[in-house]
C-alpha cells in the first residue's frame, strides 16, 4: 500500500487525539478519587507517579521472579546449602578496625568469635559476639576493635560462627596503623 504524507499526518493526528483523550479521561476517572480516601489523612503526592499500565518488560520481570521461585524444578525452597560466612567490611576507621560479616543462614542463635593474630601466628586479640537475623541472612553483632588493643602491622582477622547445627568461618588480612 502506498503511504502518503496525508496518510501519515492523518494517522498521527488520530493517535495524538486518542492518547490525549485517554490521558484526559484517565485523569477524570482516577485523578479525583483521592476524595474517597478512607484513612482520613491527606497525603501529598510530591513525586510523579506513573499510573500507566506496566510495560511488557516490567510484567516479564515479575513473571521471571515468579517462575524462578515457584515454577522451576528446584523452586520448592527446601534445598539447603552449606553455611558460609563472608566479610562485608574489614577496614580501619580512625582508631578502630571495623569488621562486619554476613552469614548465609537465618538465625539468631550461635556465637561469633573474632581472633586476631600477627604474622607469627600469635594471638593478639580475641572477642566474641552474638548473632542477629536480618532479611535474608544473619550477621555477627560486631566487631569494632580499638587499635589500642592491637599492634601495628599486618594482622589476620578470623571470624568463626558456631551454632548448634553449623559452623562457618572466614579470615582476612589487614594492615593496622597507629
Amino acid at each position: 500500500m502506498r503511504i502518503t504524507t496525508k496518510t501519515i499526518l492523518l494517522a498521527s493526528a488520530v493517535v495524538l487525539l486518542v492518547v490525549a483523550t485517554g490521558v484526559g479521561a484517565y485523569y477524570f476517572l482516577y485523578g479525583q478519587s483521592d476524595s474517597t480516601d478512607t484513612s482520613g489523612k491527606q497525603a501529598k503526592d510530591t513525586s510523579p507517579v506513573n499510573y500507566e499500565a506496566p510495560r511488557e518488560e516490567q510484567v516479564d520481570g515479575g513473571t521471571q521472579i515468579k517462575k524462578d521461585k515457584y515454577a522451576s524444578d528446584d523452586s520448592t525452597g527446601s534445598q539447603s546449602a552449606a553455611v558460609s560466612l563472608r566479610f562485608s567490611q574489614s577496614e580501619q576507621v580512625g582508631n578502630s578496625v571495623r569488621i562486619r560479616t554476613i552469614i548465609n543462614t537465618l538465625t539468631s542463635n550461635g556465637t561469633c568469635k573474632l581472633t586476631v593474630t600477627d604474622a607469627s601466628g600469635s594471638q593478639v586479640y580475641s572477642t566474641s559476639a552474638g548473632v542477629q537475623a536480618a532479611s535474608s541472612y544473619s550477621t555477627c553483632k560486631g566487631f569494632d576493635v580499638p587499635t589500642s588493643e592491637l599492634e601495628a602491622g599486618v594482622l589476620v582477622f578470623a571470624v568463626v560462627f558456631t551454632s548448634d547445627t553449623s559452623t562457618a568461618s572466614a579470615k582476612v588480612s589487614l594492615e593496622v596503623t597507629k
Binding site: P54, Q58, V59, G61, G62, T63, Q64, I65, K66, K69, Y70, G77, S78, Q79, S80, A81, A82, V83, N104, T105, L106, A133, S135, S136, Y137
Partner: peptide, 28 residues
C-alpha cells in the same frame, strides 16, 4: 521480591513471603 504488583494471578506463597523477608538464599 515477588512480582506482586504486576502479577495477574499471584500465589499464596508470594503473599507469605511478599517482601522476601526471612528468606535466605540457601534455605527455605
Amino acid at each position: 521480591e515477588q512480582g506482586l504488583v504486576t502479577d495477574t494471578w499471584p500465589l499464596n506463597l508470594q503473599y507469605k513471603t511478599a517482601t522476601g523477608y526471612g528468606c535466605p538464599d540457601t534455605a527455605p
